[in-house]
């Protein structure tokens, strides 16, 4: 940093020259500090990935890092993945998809309608009702489990997946309304007014104008909600009686086979595949979704 404490260089005409972005020795200290943080942040995942490809003998006898020493490639295999998929993780993977996809799509339309109404229609209690949604963003989900379990019994809802879709729709709704209202509310007034002048009803404006214009916000919410339901553990633990999702299966493996690291590492990596694919392929939307959704409790 000391380089920048000197007076900035000036050209003959007296203009201040921007210091070059990568000045030699300050940028080396920056790089070293960053490399340390990045190593600390990446090593856990790298170790998991390496270990998941080493057979049980290798994993049990030496650390995963020995793979980088001479002869370390011995005992590399994909058997762990086959074994853990057959031990229930494969079925759970499909179950997780079955939970997450409908739980992501179903709330969107109701939320978008509410968001449009809050943003562009005048009615009594508008602010109060929206404040209700903002307040509910941080309500702990634990409030819902006992009352909803009773409600499901009284209504005769016994299918694990139906229970999950309904619950996630409810839990995701405040956030969906919040994100979409902020976005739809920021659309230019002239666009909405002009539709009105052309004689479009609210219903038509919504379908022909608002939905197409809101695609970025819809995508941001969808990604957040999908990852949230995919990675959820607690809601599945409470409501799923006859089926398991990947997080629950992994947690059970940790409990029952806590020393079989060749299986646990492979199992953990399987649960991470879908979120990581979303992360690397849709990073822009992913960042937007997570930052917009971060207010959720």
């Amino acid at each position: 940093m000391s380089a920048s404490t000197q007076a900035p260089a000036r050209t003959a005409s007296g203009e201040i020259l921007e210091p070059p972005k990568e000045t030699t020795h300050s940028s080396w200290s920056v790089r070293i500090a960053l490399i340390i943080v990045i190593a600390f942040w990446s090593l856990p995942t790298v170790g998991l990935l390496v270990a998941s490809f080493r057979d049980s003998v290798a994993t049990r006898s030496t650390g995963w890092w020995t793979v980088f020493t001479p002869g370390g490639f011995e005992g590399l295999t994909i058997d762990n993945y086959v074994q853990v998929l057959e031990a229930g993780m494969g079925e759970s993977f499909i179950n997780s998809l079955t939970v997450a996809v409908p739980a992501t799509i179903i709330p969107i339309l109701a939320a978008a309608f509410a968001a449009y109404t809050f943003a562009w229609m005048e009615f009594k209690g508008r602010e109060l009702l929206f404040v209700l949604f903002v307040g509910l963003l941080v309500v702990p989900l634990q409030v819902a489990f006992i009352p909803l379990t009773r409600l499901y019994i009284n209504l005769g809802v016994t299918n694990d997946f139906v229970k999950m879709w309904l619950a996630h729709t409810g839990f995701g709704m405040p956030l969906a309304v919040y994100i979409l209202r902020n976005y739809i509310g920021s659309l230019p007034r002239e666009v909405i007014e002009s539709a009105k002048v052309d004689g479009a009803s609210h219903f038509e404006t919504f379908w022909k104008l608002i939905i197409p214009l809101s695609v970025p916000a819809l995508a941001a919410f969808a990604i957040f909600q999908f990852l949230w339901t995919w990675n959820d553990f607690l809601v599945a633990l409470v409501f799923m009686v006859n089926n398991e999702v990947v997080t629950v299966t992994l947690a059970e493996l940790v409990g029952s086979r806590g020393q079989d690291w060749h299986l646990l590492t492979a199992g953990a990596f399987i649960t991470m595949t879908v979120p990581l694919i979303v992360f690397f392929s849709l990073q822009r939307f992913f960042v937007r979704g997570l930052t917009a959704g971060s207010v959720k409790g």
């Binding site: 942040w41 990446s42 170790g47 553990f233 953990a268 991470m272 990581l276 960042v287 997570l290």
Partner: peptide
């Protein structure tokens, strides 16, 4: 690289660190 763990479930992260 720093942001990537955000994609991982708490259960997955717990398993990763139990291994560490």
């Amino acid at each position: 690289l720093i942001f990537m763990p955000m994609a991982i479930s708490f259960v997955g992260a717990s398993t990763i660190w139990l291994f560490i």
